[in-house]
Design a protein around this nucleic acid. Structure first.
Length: 377
RNA sequence: GUGAGCGUAGCUCAGCUGGUGGUAGCACCGGGUUGUGGCCUCGGCGGUCGUGGGUUCAAGUCCCAUCGCUCACC
């Protein structure tokens, strides 16, 4: 595929794997660069739940997410602008990517109404009627001052018939064009979102429509919405092949450690997912040998750290027995220590993958990744 | 001491005039969780109905005794 028109790519690729579609590079933003492939912790409400910015820096996070819809509702983007922007507000001076609120149209769909103009919501907080157009979403993200803005999109549920998928995909494209037009010259990047559901030809169509507009990067939306796992990987692979090679490609909302490995293998550069943080708060820890559920009684008196080969703050200092005790006691520290560990694992997994790409040993890395798993995990 | 009320799962309790112990909540034990509501969800374990008698074809339910707890009054 040819390059996208209009704007130079913020993406510099250092190394391409000779073994697969994986590549290693960096994305330039207003708040510095980040290395890819990258995992971005989710911090919906201007905080990565349970951890501080200092924790995030120590565990190696380079970029985090925040959410347009949630911050628009509370505390309000104008307030954040007045207080110096999102970075200053939350004391984070590295890159921030803001999701547009498109996913909330999907996840809060019983409260949302989609029209050509945009999305009407009834606030999940107090029921207040509010409206978010593609132009509004850009304006809010400009007020927040995020480094990477996402276009408002419409995420398609699974299963969905082809007509419904086509309609949503084309609406997303029209919204994408309006988003690009609404953008002011702030230096913030704007990514388009490829929809198209589980139909390869519609994914291709979505890519073509976005490339006509031209964005700073391209995201794959509407995946991991209940479809079979293999289908997710197939659609990812198909879509990546249609996208220009010199722009960053972001797989939204994915996924498990296995998903990350398989998606990097297929050429994905950026990820976000609530899984490491949410599951941390629900007592599940990711380790190099698979996942453990720290609330299980078998860890009652287990003196080992969650992952004996992990160098995170949690594993360096605390036993499974203690973490189980904290979790069972509903202590706040449980959420913090579990989240630190899981994010360290995810960030470390990405670091390992970058290293493997640079050394051109990604296939060996991938084989070893699976070989280390315990049976059940 | 007198009067009243209450004893059912680890805890809090449903159980109507006797007819197989509750899909109850919490706790506990497992599973799930993919652009986040610290949530939610799906399974599972769990009871000689305080104890001893009696009435009855049949008692958690009715009667007597007894033990324990609570409240009120002395």
């Amino acid at each position: 595929m040819e390059s996208s028109p209009n704007k130079p790519s913020p993406f510099v690729i250092h190394t391409r794997s000779s073994q697969c579609a994986a590549r290693c590079g960096e994305v330039q933003t207003l708040h510095g660069t980040f290395q890819t492939p990258i995992f971005m912790p989710v911090g919906t409400q201007a905080t990565v739940k349970a951890v501080s910015p200092e924790n995030l820096i120590e565990l190696g996070a380079e970029t985090i997410l925040a959410n347009t819809y949630h911050l628009f509702l509370r505390p309000g983007h104008e307030l954040i602008r007045e207080l110096g922007g999102l970075h200053r507000f939350m004391n984070w001076d590295r890159p921030i990517l803001t999701d547009s609120g498109g996913f909330q149209i999907f996840s809060l769909r019983e409260l949302a109404t989609i029209t050509e103009e945009g999305a009407g919501f009834k606030s999940h907080l107090d029921g207040t009627a509010l409206f978010l157009s593609p132009e509004d979403a850009v304006a809010v993200q400009e007020a927040l001052g995020s480094d990477i803005m996402m276009c408002l999109d419409t995420c398609i549920p699974y299963p969905a018939d082809k007509d419904e998928t086509l309609n949503a995909t084309e609406l997303t494209a029209r919204w994408a064009r309006r988003s690009r037009r609404a953008q002011r010259q702030t230096g913030q990047l704007l990514f388009g979102i490829v929809q198209g559901g589980m139909y390869p030809d519609l994914r291709t169509l979505a890519v073509e429509q976005l490339l006509e507009i031209g964005f700073d990067g391209y995201a794959l939306g509407g995946l991991s919405v209940g479809e079979p796992h293999d289908l997710m990987l197939d659609i990812t692979e198909h879509t990546v092949k249609k996208l220009p090679r010199d722009y960053p490609v972001y797989l939204m909302g994915v996924g498990t450690p296995e998903d990350l490995v398989e998606s990097v293998y297929r050429g994905i550069d950026m990820f976000d997912c609530v899984m490491p943080t949410r599951n941390a708060r629900n007592g599940m820890l990711f380790t190099s040998r698979g996942r453990i559920v720290i609330k299980n009684s078998q860890y009652n008196n287990d003196p080992r750290p969650p992952d004996e080969s992990c160098a995170c703050y949690t594993c360096r200092n605390y036993s499974r027995a203690y973490l189980r005790h904290l979790y069972m006691s509903r202590e706040i520290l449980a959420y913090q220590l579990n989240t630190i560990h899981n994010l360290y694992y995810y960030v470390g997994l990405m670091r390992s993958m970058r290293k493997a790409i640079v050394n051109d040993t990604f296939l060996q890395f991938r084989n070893n990744f699976y070989a280390m798993r315990d049976e059940k995990s």
